[in-house]
């Protein structure tokens, strides 16, 4: 049988998944724009697109809520979801293990320490102000990614046990540092820190998006253009080198890009875990591990997952809302345990 034919059949199947994810994303985006604390009005996203003369019966407050609260929130969910999913796919390729994830490895924790330290210090020290949150989150993420990769890499092979244990240690340290800052913080800083620890899209606004979005978009683009190289890295460092990849440079680039993107995501939405673990896994199941197909689908599914989690977080305790990090952890941690058991079974098979 010609294997060429099978490749064409598969291509059709992959495209179907892209269409399915795009449709789901569109539906969830519409749901996100049309529902909120003011209630549900399915016409709102359509009304917004119509000329002013045709929207005279719509209350201005509803339109303002949609453009100033719901729309930035939707875009933030899309940005953070796509970033965390692509960062997950990249770290898994870097570590050659499907259990690697920016939150489990402590990268989001490191970024949160950076962000929280700026928030805490901005109230005390005059030259520290809140515009430094994103750069500080990036530096925190960069330090942790570099450290964790160095700790767990042994002769080009990443030891997953060491990686996860180092992640546990770094997360514990991050929590301790955040706890220390919280202890000395005033009331307003304390509320912000709590928000960062649990993750939320509630703080979405246009000014914050202006500095966070370019960081995230640049990171996603940088990973996307390297997808072929990163693919080869999944074979192993030596193999990638023998196939013509400058492995040392590529690894540094991945570490830097992931830190940049995760830093940006944490600065905008706080610590949101497990999206980077769960989404690439689902994408791999649907279209295989080849990043040329899997990364675009991961990006789409990352947006879907984040919008879904955001919708659930708003629905459960309406009209209030649950921090989104709690929702992703509730869904993600059982899946992580399932993956651990699966890997254990694989090792003993």
């Amino acid at each position: 049988m010609s294997t060429l034919a099978s490749t064409f059949v598969d291509t059709k199947r992959y495209v179907q998944w892209y269409w399915f994810s795009c449709t789901l994303l569109g539906l969830l985006a519409w749901l996100s724009l049309s529902s909120g604390a003011l209630g549900w009005d399915w016409k709102m996203p359509i009304v917004w697109l119509l000329p002013d003369s045709m929207t005279s019966d719509v209350q201005p407050l509803h339109l303002t809520v949609m453009t100033q609260i719901r729309l930035p929130r939707l875009l933030l969910a899309i940005l953070v979801g796509s970033m965390l999913a692509s960062a997950g796919a990249a770290t898994q390729a870097l570590c050659r293990n499907p259990l690697a994830d920016p939150s489990l490895m402590g990268i989001t924790g490191g970024a949160a320490v950076g962000a929280v330290s700026v928030i805490a210090l901005s109230a005390q020290v005059s030259f520290v102000h809140e515009a430094m949150v994103a750069p500080a989150a990036f530096l925190g993420a960069l330090a942790v990614t570099t450290l964790i990769y160095k700790i767990s890499n042994h002769h080009g092979q990443v030891q997953i046990t060491t990686l996860l244990l180092a992640g546990v240690a770094i997360n514990a340290m991050a929590m301790a540092i955040i706890g220390l800052f919280s202890f000395f913080a005033d009331d307003s800083s304390l509320r912000l820190m709590t928000y960062w620890q649990m993750g939320s899209l509630g703080g979405a606004n246009w000014p914050a998006m202006q500095y966070g979005a370019p960081l995230i978009l640049l990171s996603i683009y940088s990973l996307f253009v390297r997808r072929k190289k990163i693919n080869v890295l999944m074979l192993g460092e030596l193999e990638a080198r023998h196939l013509g990849v400058n492995v040392k440079r590529l690894k540094s680039e991945i570490v830097f890009i992931v830190a940049l993107g995760v830093g940006g995501a944490v600065a905008l939405s706080g610590m949101i875990g497990f999206v980077g673990l769960l989404v690439p896994h689902i994408a791999r199941l649907l279209v295989g591990p080849d990043l040329k197909r899997m990364l675009p689908l991961s990006i789409l599914l990352g947006c879907v997952a984040m919008l879904l989690a955001d919708w659930v977080s708003r629905l459960i305790v309406a009209p209030s809302e649950l921090p989104i990090g709690i929702v992703t952890a509730l869904f993600g941690s059982p899946f992580f345990i399932y993956q651990l058991l699966k890997q254990k079974r694989g090792q003993h098979a």
Binding site: R96, P98, N231, M234, L235, L243, G244, V245, G288, P289
Partner: peptide, 16 residues
């Protein structure tokens, strides 16, 4: 390899 590439895909990586 820890990722579920197909045999075809793995051989094709030789063309990188």
């Amino acid at each position: 390899v820890n990722f579920s590439f197909s045999t075809e895909e793995l051989i094709a990586m030789g063309r990188y």
